[in-house]
Design a protein around this nucleic acid. Sequence first.
DNA 1: CGATTACCTACTAAATTGGTCAACTATAAG
DNA 2: CTTATAGTTGACCAATTTAGTAGGTAATCG
Lengths: 167, 167
Amino acid sequence: MRLTTKGRYAVTAMLDLALHSSERPVSLADISQRQDISLSYLEQLFSKLRRCNLVSSVRGPGGGYRLSRGGGDIFVAQIIDAVNDTFDATGCGGKADCQQGEVCLTHYLWCDLSDQIHGFLSAISLSQLLEKREVLTIAARQDARSDAGQRVPAIEIKGDTLLVTEI
Amino acid sequence: MRLTTKGRYAVTAMLDLALHSSERPVSLADISQRQDISLSYLEQLFSKLRRCNLVSSVRGPGGGYRLSRGGGDIFVAQIIDAVNDTFDATGCGGKADCQQGEVCLTHYLWCDLSDQIHGFLSAISLSQLLEKREVLTIAARQDARSDAGQRVPAIEIKGDTLLVTEI
DNA sequence: CGATTACCTACTAAATTGGTCAACTATAAG
DNA sequence: CTTATAGTTGACCAATTTAGTAGGTAATCG
């Protein structure tokens, strides 16, 4: 398990996707603008996310990416694993020159810690993160009650109806 | 919180230190041999570990390093933080151009995950790891003998928090 | 003294991160 | 059919980090 900025970018992008893909697919350009991640870097990340079946793509005008399944079935660990292609574990696992049992054990202990964290992140879904976000948003609104509540509505024109969704 | 090979090297070296420093100080050359880490890289790591008061040094022949205090008072998170000097958090925390509350929130959620992992690793001491090592050694011996391999789960996932019951 | 070992600085090679660019392909809208 | 949109791929690049080297100084012990 590796925790780097790469994984954070991926999780952030997936959160953005989960937030905005209720109606139409979300283009990487949109995510790039909203989350301030370079478009080309997003392309790299989503190429891997797609290969791991975490997102599905829709081509052509109005296309973009969607979560491949519900946010409740996509877990943070899956996202991080998808973009960290080289999970060589310990370098010791593969090599046969582990001269002493002791070396193996210390490596094993590190693996164990890593696995525990992996298990932790495997239990947190995108939906759970979003729920937490809602809680935090409400808390923030209550904090800044006196000021303008600045809710940001997303207005979409769908056919002949006007869709106003509060985010 | 960053989990990379650097931190793993540091934890491995500290485990080696905890294992062998009961009598005399342990030289980096010894650790280098036993754990197959280059001596110079160990010097870099231990320079930081010493600056963070995790180890104390003894110069001269027969010198080396010792844990600065009992293994029960040194925690994995401290070791990892010591060698990862640049803990810039999210890059968003400092920057003021967080245009929308939304961006801050996704970043905040990542921070929150990271903090939970940090808290998790802050609860695991070197001594606990060593105890686990003993358990595993015994278990391995028992496995080899009677094929009764059962691994005791030390950490439970309860909601989105980690319960460290016993290690 | 001389051997040992920590300690320090500078340097280098490899890998990773983050990003750019260009060409290409599939698709949907007009 | 044409064209714009948008995904896909691959090559390339700069900055940073990781990992390791080389060479020296300082302290300490026998």
